[in-house]
C-alpha cells in the first residue's frame, strides 16, 4: 500500500492543489488513481502526456495531476486535444470527460473524433448526472430517475455511450465501473497503447446528487449496485434483452487495429508534399 501511495504521489500536484473539489465518496478520485497507475505501469514520461478536459466535476482532474494540462471550455476538450495531437504527434493525449461534457454539449465532437480515429484516449466518466451545476438531468440519466431538472422523473431516453462510440467508428471501446479498479487500470492501459481513438467509459457514483435524489445516498451502496449489476460482455451475449434491463455490460467491445490512424495520415501527406516541394 505504501509503495502504491508514493507511486501515485509522484504524479500529483499535491503540494499546490489538494484537497480536490470532489465530494466524499465520489468516484472520480478512484478513476484518477486508476489512470495514474496505468500511466505508471506503462512508464510514459510525464512530459509526454497532455491531459485535456472540458468543464464539469470530472473535468477538474487536470488541475491535480503533474502533466501538460489543459482545462478548457464545456464540451470542447476533444477539439482542443485534436489540435494538441496534430501539432505534437509524439505526445500521448488523454481526454477526461463527463457524460454531460462528452455526450451532450460535446456530443458532436465525440462522434467526429470517433469517425476520424485520431490517436487520443478518452476516459468518459459516466455518473448519470450533472454534478458541478448541482444535479441536473444528463443524456445518460436512466428513464424515470430523478434530477433537479427532472423532478417528476426523467422522460429523456438516455444514450449508450459505448453503442454511440461503436457506431461512430471508434477503434477501441471499453466499459467498466468504479467498483472494478483492476479492470479499469487494464482497460486504460490497453486504450493508451492502442493506436487510434479509444474510449473507456467508466460508470461512476455521484452519491451527493444522483444518489440522494434516487434513494441511494451512501457511496458504498452505489458501489455495491455497480458490482451486482455489472455483466461481463461474454456473459451478456448469452442473456436476453429483458434479463439485461438495468444491467451494466462491461468489457472490451472493440479493438480494431486495421483502420488507419488520422495523425499518421496527416503527416504522411505532409512528408509526400513537402518532399515534392523541395522540403521548403
Amino acid at each position: 500500500m505504501a509503495t502504491q501511495l508514493s507511486e501515485i504521489h509522484e504524479y500529483l500536484r499535491w503540494r499546490k492543489r489538494f484537497p480536490t473539489v470532489w465530494c466524499a465518496g465520489c468516484g472520480i478520485g478512484t478513476i484518477m488513481n486508476n489512470m495514474l497507475h496505468a500511466i505508471h505501469d506503462l512508464q510514459i514520461p510525464k512530459d509526454d502526456i497532455a491531459l485535456i478536459s472540458g468543464i464539469g466535476c470530472s473535468s477538474r482532474m487536470p488541475i491535480y495531476v503533474d502533466f501538460n494540462t489543459l482545462h478548457t471550455t464545456h464540451g470542447r476538450a476533444l477539439p482542443f486535444a485534436i489540435g494538441v495531437k496534430l501539432a505534437r504527434p509524439e505526445m500521448t493525449v488523454i481526454v477526461v470527460s463527463g457524460d454531460g461534457d462528452g455526450l451532450a454539449i460535446g456530443g458532436n465532437h465525440f462522434i467526429h473524433a470517433c469517425r476520424r480515429n485520431i490517436d487520443i484516449t478518452m476516459i468518459l466518466i459516466n455518473n448519470s448526472i450533472y454534478g458541478m451545476t448541482g444535479g441536473q438531468v444528463a443524456p445518460t440519466t436512466p428513464l424515470g430517475a430523478r434530477a433537479h431538472t427532472a423532478p417528476y422523473g426523467n422522460i429523456d431516453p438516455p444514450f449508450d455511450a459505448v453503442e454511440l462510440a461503436l457506431a461512430a467508428g471508434a477503434t477501441f471501446v471499453a466499459r467498466s465501473t468504479t467498483y472494478h479498479i483492476i479492470q479499469n487500470i487494464n482497460y486504460i492501459k490497453k486504450a493508451l497503447q492502442h493506436k487510434g481513438f479509444s474510449v473507456v467509459e467508466i460508470i461512476s457514483q455521484c452519491p451527493t446528487l444522483y444518489g440522494r435524489l434516487n434513494g441511494i445516498p451512501d457511496p458504498r451502496d452505489m458501489l455495491l449496485w455497480e458490482k451486482e449489476n455489472a455483466v461481463p460482455l461474454a456473459k451478456a451475449k448469452k442473456m436476453s434483452p429483458e434479463e439485461l434491463k438495468g444491467k451494466i455490460i462491461t468489457g472490451i467491445f472493440r479493438e480494431d487495429t486495421q483502420k488507419p490512424e488520422y495523425t499518421e495520415q496527416v503527416y504522411e501527406l505532409i512528408r509526400k508534399l513537402s518532399k515534392s516541394n523541395g522540403g521548403k
Binding site: L70, T72, F80, A81, I82, G83, V84, K85
Partner: peptide
Amino acid sequence: AAIIGASA
C-alpha cells in the same frame, strides 16, 4: 478549439 490546442 483545435487552433487553441495547437497553439498550446
